[in-house]
Design a protein around this nucleic acid. Structure first.
Lengths: 183, 183
DNA sequence: GCAAATTAATGATTTATTCAAG
DNA sequence: CTTGAATAAATCATTAATTTGC
C-alpha cells in the first residue's frame, strides 16, 4: 500500500485477497451494483473507491488473458516468422511482401483481383482437390494444440456470471497454502 | 490432440489468429479461390487442407449466430437472476471476515437476491459519483446507479465490408503508424 | 546496510472493437 | 449507415522489488 501519497490506490493485502477470491470464483466483470457492494466492504480494510474495484477487475482479467495467450504461443510457436500482416497494419515497407506473389495471382484472380466473389450456386466450395490435397510439412507434427481445442468462440464467451458475491463463511483456505499470489 | 492421429485438423495458434482476423474483417463465406489461397498460406504454419478452412468458416459463422441468439434471449428472459448463492463450499479464514452478513441484504437485494443485476446500460461502471466518492472507514455512502456519462466515444471509422483477402494491391499504405512514445 | 538506479507489477487512461438499436 | 453502450486491447504512469556501488 502507499501510505502517504494518495496518488493512486494501493490495495491492502486483505483487499487483494478478497478480490482474488472473487475472481477465482468466477467473477470477471462485476456489474455496477456488484462493484458498489464490493467497494463498500473492501472499505473496511482501507480507503477505496468504486473505480478501483472496476479497474482491478479489468486489469486482472486482461492480464490473465495476456498471460494465457503468451503461454499458449510460447508453448508451440516455432513456425516461420512472418505472421500475416494485413494491409492496414502494413508499415510502409516496400521490401516486405506479406504474401508471395503466387498467392496473389492464383487462378480465379485477374490482375490480382479475385473475380469470383462467392460464386453463385456453389455454396459448397469444397472441390475434390481440397478434400485430399494437404499442404504442409508432413514429416513433422507441428500441432500440439490442447485437447479438442477448437478455433472458435475463444473471445467474448459468456460464462454464467451468477456467483455468490460475498461468502458467508470466510474464505482463504487454511489447509491449502495458496502459492504466492503472484500476478 | 491430433499430431499422431490425422483424424482431424488441429489448428495452430497462428492459423487460428489468421482465420479470426479474416473473419473479423468481414470474410464470412470465402469463395473457392479464397479458400485455396488461405489454405496455402496457412500451410506455412501447419498441416491443413482446404476443407478445414471451409469448415472453420462455416462453424465460426454458425457459432457466432448461435452466440448472438443466445445472448439476446438471455438478455430478454432472465433479466432478474439470483446473484448470491450461499451454499458454496467455503474455506474458513483464520484472519479476517471478508464480508459481513449485512452485505447480503444491502439495498438492491431482496431476501439476499440481487434484484438489479446490471440492468441495461449500467455496466460501464465509471460514474461520476465513483470518481470522487471514496469509501473509507469514516463514511458509508451508497450511490445509486445512474446513467454513465463519459466522453469516450471517439471517431468511428467505416471499415470495409468485403475485404480483400490478402493485400492484392501492394500500396493502400494507410500509414497508420501511431508511434509509440517513449516510456 | 543504504540509497540511487534499474526493472518488474500493477493501477489508471485512452483507444479500438463489437453488438445491437434507431 | 449511424450511433450509443459496453468492453477489451493497448498504453501510460506510479509504486514495489531488485540490483548495484559504495
Amino acid at each position: 500500500m502507499c501510505p502517504s501519497s494518495n496518488r493512486r490506490w494501493c490495495p491492502t493485502p486483505e483487499q487483494v485477497m478478497i478480490l482474488e477470491e472473487l475472481y477465482r470464483r468466477g467473477l470477471k466483470t462485476p456489474s455496477a451494483a456488484q462493484i458498489q457492494r464490493i467497494t463498500a466492504h473492501l472499505a473496511l480494510y482501507g480507503k477505496i473507491q468504486g473505480k478501483n474495484v472496476f479497474y482491478w477487475f479489468q486489469n486482472h482479467k486482461a492480464r490473465d488473458r495476456q498471460k494465457l495467450k503468451k503461454k499458449l504461443l510460447a508453448n508451440q510457436l516455432h513456425q516461420t516468422q512472418p505472421l500475416l500482416y494485413f494491409h492496414h497494419h502494413l508499415p510502409t515497407s516496400p521490401y516486405f511482401q506479406p504474401f508471395p506473389q503466387t498467392l496473389l495471382h492464383a487462378q480465379g484472380t485477374t490482375n490480382g483481383v479475385c473475380d469470383e466473389e462467392a460464386p453463385a450456386g456453389s455454396l459448397f466450395p469444397i472441390q475434390k482437390e481440397w478434400l485430399n490435397g494437404s499442404y504442409g510439412r508432413d514429416s513433422t507434427m507441428i500441432m500440439e494444440v490442447g485437447p479438442t481445442m477448437f478455433p472458435c468462440c475463444s473471445t467474448r464467451n459468456k460464462p454464467l456470471q451468477t456467483l455468490d458475491l460475498f461468502p458467508l463463511t470466510p474464505p482463504t483456505a487454511t489447509t491449502h497454502d495458496q502459492s504466492s499470489s503472484t500476478s
